[in-house]
């Protein structure tokens, strides 16, 4: 088993010094909210980029495909000077995978900050497992094993900081149906 991605930064080592300090990098290439590097007219996006995280101001490498396409879109729009450009909201962990005949979906942060609440439920007979983390009525992360919900919808609920207080119990009982209801009311 393996986990994580390590961009190759070796080619950026030993750049010339002077007014142009070269492309700033840490574990990846450090980029702004519009995917611009420290050097004018140079942008970076995808697995090599280290950009703002949604939950933290510190820059992180969020090496997943949906984020890479979003970063690529933003970089392209910034290069073209597109006035419709919206700043990168920050990367969020997202995944969906099969293992041992089960299916898992994870969206958002697994960290539990102070004041946050973790709700879990597990049904032994069906093997369905759900874990959700709330802070002040808003969703921070949601995880399911054999519990199906729309990852794209959950991602928006987190990014838009939707207040789920009023529908929390229904949401936990059936995140797929209630997520779709909220989607069609809020951003359809």
């Amino acid at each position: 088993m393996a986990t994580g991605i390590k961009p190759n930064m070796a080619y950026l080592e030993g750049q010339v010094s002077g007014p142009d300090k070269g492309v700033e990098h840490d574990r990846g290439i450090l980029v702004s909210d519009t995917m611009q590097t420290s050097v004018a007219n140079v942008w970076a996006a995808g697995d090599c980029a280290q950009a703002k995280g949604f939950f933290t101001e510190a820059r992180v490498i969020n090496s997943i495909l949906p984020d890479a396409t979003e970063q690529g879109r933003i970089a392209g729009m910034a290069m073209a000077g597109d006035p419709g450009l919206k700043k990168y909201p920050g990367g969020m962990s997202l995944n969906t995978y099969h293992f041992f005949g089960r299916h898992a979906i994870s969206v958002g942060s697994s960290a539990v900050p102070e004041g946050a609440e973790v709700v879990t439920r597990f049904d032994e007979a069906s093997g369905r497992y759900l874990k959700a983390i709330f802070l002040g009525g808003r969703l921070l992360g949601i995880y399911g094993v054999n519990e199906f919900f729309d990852a794209g919808v959950m991602c928006q609920l987190i990014l838009r900081r939707v207040d789920l207080s009023a529908v929390r119990e229904r949401f936990l009982a059936n995140p797929m149906a209630v997520g779709r209801e909220l989607m069609s009311k809020l951003w359809r």
Binding site: F148, G152, V153, M183
Partner: peptide, 19 residues
């Protein structure tokens, strides 16, 4: 390849797993 990344990309629940 059944990776389901499309279900993350779509914010409208327009593509979902048919269990």
């Amino acid at each position: 390849v059944d990776c389901l990344l499309c279900t993350i990309g779509c914010t409208y629940a327009g593509i979902a797993l048919d269990a």
